[in-house]
Design a binder for these strands. Structure first.
Length: 728
RNA sequence: GGGCGUUUAGCUCAGUGGUAGAGCGUUGCAUUCACAUUGCAAAGGCCGCAGGUUCAAUCCCUGCAACGCCCACCA
């Protein structure tokens, strides 16, 4: 018999153990292979024929703990996969964690900072040891938390993106691309901290408002505005907006412009003539300054991108220490601020300064030391995207892969059509080291791409010794391989390609698009059929939930207080497809619903106690109420199944809620009470109560797995089975 | 700046070319007999604003406004 009060905490723990011990999370242990019709079969009917269904979990980073986004990310696929498993499908939900290069390095460095140390003091090897310690300690936190949510992933196959076999696949992918001629080295302007002597990612930048001066310099026939006159020696073009009527006629011309010379003595500024081409580029805002900008590709990221588009040369005038270099002639060796001051004076003296006005703007500073960051050119590895992007476009364009909802196809196509080559190298320590070797002599820069240090002499300089590239690969380079690098060879035969990924929209391009072309490139097949994009969970005020802003909510709070089922209920109840303004009331509604289910079950089990009925009994309805509830049950079953298969989980749950609470509890149970005291010699009412209850909790199981399983275990003659593998 | 989305009951959201729905909240009544984490009932909405299409618009179209998200950027 069921306890009077439903205690989720205790029961959820027991039930989860029951499931794990059954081994059914692993598809290899599942009883009967069956069929699936999920996600509308492809033309070839792949989904119809398949006996497996594979979902790729969005890899949680090893940096953090659970938030509502993860709860949503994982509850929805869990509904689907439980539904299918109950349909006899061999379901594999592949779980894993991502080393998340920059993000993880960042948190470990913050740890170090608390100890007053830096990664440079530790050195690369020791530092990486520290990151591994972190990973081993916190790496599976989210996965453990997901278990509390009831997630039925196959934990026996859990992978980490830096597992040895995974690393091998990463290296193979790199060498593969290299052999195809798609990898090349080139310059790219990056964010550089002159004080820490390192490049910084977007994550490591802190923006500060800076009060400065906007200088209007004469570049006859133009005047143009800049806050950084000292970089003028690195100018390689001038740019205007192509639609700017004032300057349209200049586009494409090269002008001789009178300018400040870097020659001569510092005491006596002098003039020289420079040649600058005028280019038209949309990046130029005609409303800013005079609508003409100088293009300094080596020292400005936007300018670098303009230069790329127009194939402009790059002249570096500032070095890695933040000082002017020999290209700056007589200003060589000056610090940036010093040089700026001197250049301003010289421009004024020569009458080249048209106007100066106060100006406030945002500057990027180093999160560690607060220094203003200095965009500088550096050598990076690039992956040519032309072919790869084309393949990803085609996969969706030809409907081999469907993105739900369809409107997300647009940003997907836009991104891929305008894609630039992918910078795959990162100047950090934590990650997959590039399988690239250079000879130690330092005389030649010949790069050998290989998974091991080459044993032969360098073809250029005959040098015998090599050192590996210091850089690591972009995290997405490895997570792009997840659908197959996460599988063993035998698993690839059985389970690749898979079926579904479900994630938030911001990684549609970063991750989904890259998994698609990687799957096609390395396995010759699309990795999945469906991409399910769900809404973002916002706060009740409609702001983004974010840990750093303190607006994030940990679902464990709800799980502990109201139970995992109530939490899953709340997430699913609200997941209509739009962004969700999180409403805690939904969790309470979920708690009430589980309570309702519990008590209705207690009632039914109490009423059948005295008679001999089992769930195998077939029942002929006698009264109008009997007929009605059976009809509604069948109808609900149809609607719920259909909606789950269309990924309309929220609708399915609303339907179930309505049926169970109102049709079953409010109406039929009340009728049943009357019927039970009236003539009922053949136990029809008892049988119907039991049947409806059993079928209800079966349908509810994918949504509220714990409580339904707990009840099922108490139902007489439940065939000794688990509800998780009971067929619908 | 580009893209996308939202605007319906006090709150969070469904929904349909033909008198408007749910959950929570509110109010009233009920209640030893599954559940007060309950039941029954009620109140509460010019379905953002302005045009248009239509016999008929909350729904389709155009414009406007507000809010939000994603991406890019601020010389």
């Amino acid at each position: 018999m069921l306890d009077k009060i439903y205690d989720p905490k205790q029961i959820e723990k027991e039930i989860y153990e029951l499931w794990e011990n059954s081994g059914y999370f692993n598809p290899d242990n599942l009883p009967v292979p069956g069929k699936t019709t999920v996600g509308e079969p492809n033309k070839k009917g792949k989904a119809n024929k398949t006996k497996t269904y594979v979902i790729y979990m969005p890899l949680p980073n090893v940096t953090g703990s659970l938030h509502m986004g993860h709860a949503l990310d994982n509850t929805l696929p869990d509904i689907l996969i439980r539904y299918l498993r109950m349909g006899g499908v061999r379901t594999l939900w592949l779980a894993g964690t991502d080393h998340a290069g920059i993000a993880t390095q960042y948190v470990v460095e913050k740890e170090l900072k608390k100890e007053g140390r830096t990664r440079f003091e530790l050195g690369r090897e020791k530092f990486i040891e520290r990151v591994w310690e972190w990973k081993n300690k916190y790496g599976n936190i989210i996965l453990d938390q997901l278990k509390k949510l009831g997630i039925s992933a196959d934990w026996s196959r859990t992978r980490f993106t830096m597992d040895p076999s995974y690393s091998q696949d990463v290296q193979k992918a790199f060498t593969h691309y290299y052999k195809k001629g798609w990898l090349y080295r080139g310059n790219r302007t990056v964010n550089w901290c002159p004080r820490c002597s390192t490049s910084l990612s977007e994550l490591e930048l802190e923006y500060k408002n800076e009060k400065t001066t906007l200088f209007y310099m004469k570049y006859e026939p133009f005047t143009l505005a800049t806050v950084r006159p000292e970089t003028k020696f690195g100018d390689t073009a001038l740019a205007v907006n192509p639609n700017d009527e004032r300057y349209k006629s200049y586009i494409g011309k090269t002008l001789n412009i009178e300018s400040l010379s870097t020659e001569g003595s510092l005491d006596k500024p002098s003039l020289t003539t420079i040649n600058l081409k005028i280019v038209g580029d949309d990046a130029v805002d005609p409303a800013f300054g005079t609508g003409v900008v100088k293009v300094t590709p080596a020292h400005d990221i936007t300018d670098f991108e303009i230069a790329e588009r127009h194939k402009l040369p790059m002249v570096q005038v500032i070095d890695h220490r933040g000082r002017m270099n020999e290209q700056a002639g007589k200003y060589n060796g000056m610090k940036i601020a010093e040089a700026r001051e001197k250049v301003i004076q010289d421009l004024r003296a020569l009458g080249l300064m048209a106007k100066e006005e106060p100006y406030e703007h945002r500057v990027a500073t180093c999160y560690r030391c607060g220094s203003t960051i200095e965009p500088l050119p550096s050598k990076q590895w690039f992956l040519k995207m032309t072919e790869l992007a084309k393949n990803s476009i085609e996969a969706v364009d030809k409907k081999k892969i469907k993105i739900h909802p369809k409107r997300f196809e647009k940003p997907y196509f836009e991104w891929l059509k305008n894609i630039r080559d992918w910078t795959v190298s990162r100047q950090i320590w934590w990650g997959h080291r590039l399988p690239v070797y250079y000879c130690v002599c330092g005389k030649c820069d010949h790069a050998t791409v290989a998974t091991e240090p080459p044993k032969t002499k360098c073809p250029k300089c005959s040098c015998k010794e090599y050192k590996q590239d210091e850089d690591v690969l972009d995290t997405w380079f490895s997570s792009a391989l997840w659908p197959f690098a996460g599988l063993s060879e035998i698993d690839i035969k059985n389970y690749y390609p898979g079926d579904l990924v479900s994630n938030a929209r911001e990684i549609l391009n970063l991750w989904d698009a890259r998994m698609i072309f990687s799957g096609l490139e390395f396995k010759g097949k699309i990795p999945f059929n469906d991409v399910l994009i769900h809404g973002t969970i916002l706060t009740k005020d409609g702001k983004r939930m974010s840990k750093s802003k303190g607006t994030g909510i940990d679902p464990l709070n709800y799980i502990n207080q109201y139970g995992a089922d109530a939490t899953r209920f709340a997430v699913t109840w609200q997941a209509s497809g739009q962004d969700i303004r999180w409403d805690e009331a939904a969790v309470i509604a979920g708690r009430k619903f589980t309570n309702k289910i519990w008590n209705a079950s207690r009632f039914v089990l109490e009423k059948i106690k005295t008679v001999d009925v089992t769930i195998q009994d077939t029942v002929k309805p006698k009264t109008a109420a009997d007929k009605k509830i059976l009809e509604e049950l069948q109808n609900t079953k149809k609607i719920v199944g259909k909606n789950i298969e269309k990924f309309e989980f929220s609708k399915a749950l609303h339907e179930l809620y309505d049926f169970f609470w109102h049709s079953f509890c409010d109406q039929y149970l009340e009728e049943a009470k009357k019927q039970l005291v009236a003539d009922n010699t053949d136990s029809t009412t008892q049988k119907l109560l039991l049947q409806t209850l059993t079928e209800s909790i079966t349908m509810l199981h994918p949504f509220l797995p714990f409580i339904t399983e707990a009840i099922y275990q108490k139902i007489p003659n439940a065939e000794n089975k688990l509800l998780m593998v009971k067929t619908w």
